[in-house]
Amino acid sequence: MRKNIKLTSAFAGITALALGLTACGTASDPGAKSDSGKADPSKPLVVAASPTPHADILTFVKDNLAEKAGLKLEVKEFTDYVLPNTATEQGQVDANYFQHKPYLDDFNKKNGTHIVPVVNVHLEPLGFYSKKVKDLKELKAGQTIAVPNDTTNEGRALKLLADHGVITLKDGVGADAKLSDIKDKKGLEFKELEAATVPRALNDVDAAVINGNYAIEAKLNPAKDALALEKADGNPYANFLAVKQGNENDARVQKLVKLLNSPEVKKYIEDTYSNGAVIPAFGAAK
């Protein structure tokens, strides 16, 4: 039985307070860095994570590898992209595992937080899905495409569409694209939604670009259901374990780093997500 602690809407009320507190900080603040030397190695390492696949991977580590490594691991599930970072910044959790570097860089810049990546674990290719067309060529002017509304994932989504000829972006625009950077929409309309809600809107729009983890939760099979799928080679969007700056060398964090990049976790990811929705992407996060 899974013993993860799932954080639901009860935590939504702390979002505004957490954001307000983190927005006041800068890299030069006295409290910007934590003293990881004071961390009690006997206490559980509490990690915030998106439910799938992040919490699933952590639960595998907890149930099969952590005890032998002398690590007490506690997993807290979050269903949004804001609270895991604010909770890590405020010390409500010790680490998080849900995001990629472009998203974290943007989040830190906007909110004055001091979260840093520690180790890459996996990649979730972004996919283009539709229940109303069976081929990208069937898209017509006037139809609506839903895209994630956070800065990095929206840019990533638009790049995917541009790479497959659905839209044309302005010259020189890449994965940081915004809707205003679309040179030719080809008559299509775009609906910006929180990433977690995009799959639920799939019946109400003509097509949608969906993050890999949310596609899995919506019972979509990227390898079979996606009309277009992000390439894995050279992809900068590996998801990683992250901590508040200064906690990188916490002994518990370093134990988890080794376990997350272990052969056992690699096999677990490949066996569990054989549909290509999640791909091992081990190595130091930069």
Rank of each mutant, 00 (worst) to 15 (best):
D150Q: 06
D150M: 04
T151F: 06
N153I: 01
E154T: 15
E154N: 11
G155W: 08
G155C: 14
R156N: 14
A157G: 11
K159E: 11
K159H: 12
L160S: 11
D163C: 12
H164D: 14
V166P: 09
I167D: 14
I167T: 10
L169V: 09
L169G: 14
L169C: 11
L169K: 07
K170M: 13
G172I: 10
V173E: 14
A175W: 07
D176H: 07
D176T: 13
A177Y: 00
S180V: 12
S180C: 06
D181G: 06
D181W: 10
K183E: 06
K183P: 00
K183N: 04
D184P: 01
K185Y: 13
K186V: 00
G187P: 07
G187T: 03
L188N: 03
L188R: 03
L188D: 04
E192Y: 04
L193R: 03
E194V: 10
E194H: 02
E194I: 08
A195C: 00
P199R: 14
R200G: 14
N203G: 05
D204S: 07
A208F: 12
V209G: 03
I210T: 04
I210P: 02
N211E: 14
G212M: 03
N213G: 12
N213P: 15
N213R: 00
A215K: 05
I216G: 04
I216A: 09
A218C: 01
K219A: 10
L220H: 05
L220M: 09
L220A: 10
N221M: 04
N221F: 06
P222H: 12
A223T: 03
K224C: 06
K224R: 08
D225K: 09
A226M: 01
A226D: 02
A228R: 01
A228P: 03
A228G: 03
E230T: 03
E230L: 01
K231L: 07
A232C: 05
D233V: 13
D233G: 06
D233A: 07
N235D: 12
P236G: 14
Y237V: 12
A238E: 12
A238G: 09
N239D: 14
F240C: 14
L241S: 09
A242S: 15
A242M: 07
V243C: 15
V243W: 00
K244H: 07
K244D: 08
Q245C: 13
